[in-house]
Amino acid sequence: MIAVLKLGFLVLLLSAGLTSVEVAPTFSDSAAKGSLMVLAGRSIPVAFHGVWAEPSDLCARPGDRKARLVIGPRAINALRVVGVEAYSDHPAIVARLRDKSGGKRRLFLDISTNHRYIRVSTGSGDHGQIWRRCARPSPRSR
């Protein structure tokens, strides 16, 4: 009986055009961060690379850079990475950045367990903003 109800619910979702159900992002327990270690090479780990936006409809608007984060190995938007620290027991990093005028900033980046969301904050009192990973363009659209 329960299997029939589950199957009926799935058929209802598919018939309504809903092929995926969005689930709230989950992050690892930050209480288990472990030790903070300086990473060699000053590069942001690959798991964090990509284009992130919030709301996610901004992914389709490449000209709107204020509402998107572009994270690469050595830069976040126009900020150059000058150092990266990672936690031994937690999938989060602290990126030390420098802007073109020489100003320094620190960003705390915490990636969700499914790597589809990232929480970005600037300090201990800041709860951060959650950004969604934009889909990578297909090879045909490049």
Rank of each mutant, 00 (worst) to 15 (best):
G128C: 04
A32T: 09
S112E: 05
L109T: 03
R132I: 00
G103D: 11
I130T: 15
L58C: 05
H90F: 15
D57P: 00
R61P: 00
D64V: 13
R132E: 11
V82A: 09
A53R: 02
L7A: 15
R119F: 02
A47E: 12
G34K: 11
I130V: 15
K104S: 11
F108L: 06
R74I: 06
R132P: 00
D126T: 07
G83D: 05
R106V: 09
I111C: 02
D29Q: 06
M37E: 12
V94H: 06
T19A: 12
A47P: 01
S43D: 12
F48V: 03
H90I: 00
G50T: 03
A92E: 02
P91T: 07
V11R: 13
V84S: 03
R96Q: 12
P73E: 12
G8A: 15
K33E: 10
A92L: 03
E22P: 00
S30N: 07
S88D: 08
R61G: 01
G123M: 04
S56I: 12
T26F: 07
E85Q: 14
S88H: 02
R106E: 13
H49E: 09
H90M: 10
G8F: 07
R142H: 10
G72H: 04
R119H: 05
R142L: 10
K104R: 15
L5Y: 12
C134T: 05
T122H: 06
Q129E: 07
R116P: 00
Y87L: 05
C134A: 08
V11H: 07
P25M: 10
S121H: 08
S43I: 10
K6D: 10
A31D: 08
N114R: 11
I44M: 06
A60W: 04
I130M: 03
K66L: 14
S141P: 00
L7P: 00
I111D: 01
I76C: 05
A95T: 09
V84F: 04
A16M: 12
G83Q: 06
H115Q: 14
G50C: 02
C134G: 06
R74N: 11
R65H: 07
S88V: 01
D126W: 09
G34S: 09
F9L: 14
D57T: 10
A95Y: 02
G103Q: 12
S56T: 09
D29I: 04
A78H: 04
G63T: 11
M1F: 11
L58H: 07
T26I: 11
I44E: 02
S121W: 02
N77D: 14
E54S: 14
L97S: 04
R136S: 13
T113S: 11
A16R: 13
K104E: 12
L10V: 15
D29P: 01
P62S: 10
R142V: 06
S15G: 15
V11E: 09
S28P: 02
G17N: 10
I111A: 03
G8L: 14
V21D: 03
